[in-house]
Every structure is written in C-alpha cells, then in structure tokens.
Design a binder for these strands. Structure first.
Lengths: 131, 131
DNA sequence: CAGCATCCCTTGGGATACTG
DNA sequence: CAGTATCCCAAGGGATGCTG
C-alpha cells in the first residue's frame, strides 16, 4: 500500500483522487467560474478583458484575472497581447479547451433532461439538511 | 432585460448561470467531494457509512454526512436504513445518479488523453500566478 | 455504527480604490 | 483598457468529543 501524502493547507489537495480518478480534471475544469469563462469564450470567440467582464456580469476583475491566469497556465485559454495604445488583450479558448466542448454539451443535455427530476427530489425531500 | 436577483450570501448563487447554462449542473455534480462519493458508490454498489469513509480516506464524518444529505436531497443517492442493532445504513447511487456515468467516463477519457498536455502547459508557463 | 454538536481556522472571493 | 493592491468577510471544512 502506497503512503498517502497529507498536506493540509495546499489548495485542492484533498485526496479524493485516491477514490476517484477524475478528481484532477474536475478541479481543473469545474472550479468556480471556469466553466462560465470557457463557455463564453467558446461561444463568442476571442474576447477582451472587459468584454468577458461584461458578459460574466457579476465577476470582479480580481477574480477574472485570477481565473484567466489559471486557465492560461493550464493551457485551456490563450492570451494574446497587442502593443497598442490603449492596450489590447484578447483571450481565446485553446484547442485543448475546445476539446472539452462535447463534455459540456453532454452536461447541457443531461441538464435539460434531468434537472426537473432534481427539482422534484428536492421538493419531495423532508429530511434534515446540515450545512 | 430581466432583473438579476442578487442574494450574496446564499450558497452557489453567483450568477454565472447568466453566461453559462450548465452552471446549475456543475454546482450539483461537481461540488467538492461529490464526484468521489458518486464514483465510489457507482463502482462498489451499496456501501455503509464507514465503508465510504474508509474508501474516501481523508474525508471527515461531518463532511461525509453533509455531502450525503445533499446528494440524497437532490435524488442522486438513496439512503436505506435497517432497523438493526447495531444500526446499519446503506447508501446507493440512484438511477438518476447512474445516468451521469457516461459523462464521468468521458471525463475519464479526456483525462487520460489530455492531462499530460495540461502538465506540459503548466511546466511551460512562466507568467505570474496571482492567488 | 452512524451520526450530531462545537469550536476553530484557512481561504476563496467580494468590494473598493488605484496604476501603467 | 487591463489589470494590481488592500481590506474584509462568510463559509466550507478540519479536529475533537459525545450520543442513540
């Protein structure tokens, strides 16, 4: 049995990966705000920082920056900077990012077909709900 | 233009849903620990509380309880209680939960085929990483 | 066994203000 | 425009102890 490394404190290093092989992808793709960002870039093509900001409505520049950096680092988004005045920067979904499209589409289908059931279940549920 | 409801404080009510139709499903299925739990139940059939706890290794009973309640409420997991001494409770993935299996499988495939690229991108990345 | 109750603490993120 | 820099807070979780 291999030794389990426990580094409490570092982000997203809970070890579910032990029990669940897709945990890394989940962390990668389904972190807060990453899905909306990828989706928006996928639908609209290259967008500038402000354009993204506007479409995501409630996101703050700080968080948008942070998520974009992360997505860029992970190769899901490409950042292109133009030497202009005023400065222009465009973000575009990468080929790698695009390869997630079918999965997003499937999630969309699943949603259409099953979210109603989830709503049902929620209404029917009477038990306790801690936290 | 429809009025955007803003209730800061309530969980997962950031509005990315505006820009991203699959946000609700993402919140439902890819919250912390839910994937490992569903995956484990899917692989192993009905499991008792302790069995789940053991397989998930680092999860605490508090969190496990909380996630299970949530999954039960949303109809993704079924809880069966047996009137025995000592008490026995079994958790099983529901039909609705099972319907997610293909998507999980696709995520697994994507992972196998592309996580290496992500690693590459991370190593190649030199820019700043706020947060 | 299968939790529930408490306490506590890290941290993701929101709000706001400011620069190159 | 495209971010940075600070301040700040709620909340998700971890640890521990107790109960039906």
């Amino acid at each position: 049995m291999t030794e389990t490394i426990n580094r409490p404190g570092s982000p997203s290093d809970y070890d579910p990966v032990q029990a669940c092989p897709i945990s890394p992808v989940v962390d990668l793709v389904f972190s807060r705000w990453t899905t909306p960002i990828l989706w928006t870039l996928h639908q609209n093509g290259p967008l500038r920082f402000v354009e993204l900001e506007r479409r995501l409505a409630t996101i703050t520049p700080k968080v948008l920056t942070s998520r974009l950096r992360q997505l860029e680092r992970d190769g899901l988004v490409e950042r292109r900077q133009f030497a202009e005045v005023p400065p222009r920067v465009e973000y575009e979904i990468s080929e790698l990012g695009r390869s997630l499209a079918p999965i997003f589409a499937d999630l969309g289908s699943w949603s259409q077909q099953n979210m109603a059931r989830v709503e049902e279940a929620r209404k029917a549920y009477t038990g306790p709900l801690p936290r």
